[in-house]
Amino acid sequence: MVAKLSKITTVWIALVLVLLCVVFSVINPAAFPTAFNLKTLLVEAAVLLVLSVGMTFVIITAGIDLSVGSVLLFASMCSALAMNSMAGGDSTAAGADVAFVGLLVALVAGAAWGVLNGLLITVAKVPPLIVTLGSFGAALGAAQLAGDGTDVDTVPEGMREWLGFGNTLGIPNMVLVALIVTLLGGWLLTTTRFGRYTFAIGSNPEAARRVGISVTRHLIMVYTLVGLLAGLAGYMSLAQFGATTLSGHTTDNLNAIAGVVLGGTSLFGGVGSIAGTVIGVFIPAVLTRGFIITGVQAYWQPIAVGLVLVAAVWFDQSRRRARNNR
């Protein structure tokens, strides 16, 4: 079964993650292996994790989505504007009803870009790389246009307090949301027909078509799912930072793709797992934190992160080759 194959590769990449944690813990035992560090690590990785769960589905279909970061911004912009207009211009003091509408707007705005991406890829038959590169620019432009070029920085304080910084049973709500998305994503991918078709289309789209699977419909749904999750991520980012942060999220797409690929999902499609993606997202996150905590000089950090990423994938690839040649 597919799950079994990816489980084997997940184990090795998980070892890399564990090893990194051990090394940082040994270097700075007072700072790294702490509840505080774990909590903030999880909270800060939550947005990227939500994006990466969606990205996993797309990459398993042998597609790619470069637009996630911009769609995130677009969704958070629409959401913030909708909440502000509902609250008469400044939603800082608005209640849960306004925040809920904001969530819906973010989800719909994100999903709409996903539908557009999916239609262009399947119906107009433009390669995903080009379609999503186009919407990467277009969604950012649309967000800037909607906000007249400026960040919207009035967000319901209640939403920031609950989603951005609140806890449930000691677990930050940001982390809970990401956890639920991850579990649902894993369930969808491994146990349902939707997941099976995702693998089949990535493995051999022609075979899928010939057995009567509507490849067009399924791909549109997959791109819509990514868009929807980017919308959710946009809402989460809004709750965390209390502003639309238009200058940011430029490398979210590459970070998500890197996380997915690190997690053993093949860029050629047909192979992948959500568990792998979780680990793949946390490796760079742990590295970034670890280097700051252990006091590695700022200029060295990107070099070291880059080196470890390449080394981890090389390690994973050579393990896989060894297994395939057995």
């Binding site: 702490t34 930072f241 942060t245 940011g248 490398t251 670890g290 700051i292």
Partner: peptide
Amino acid sequence: TQYNENEASKAATIVTATLAA
């Protein structure tokens, strides 16, 4: 000095990681 690459999220990480240490 730490660099946040103009990403708010990176600045948040820098702060919490520094607080850990």
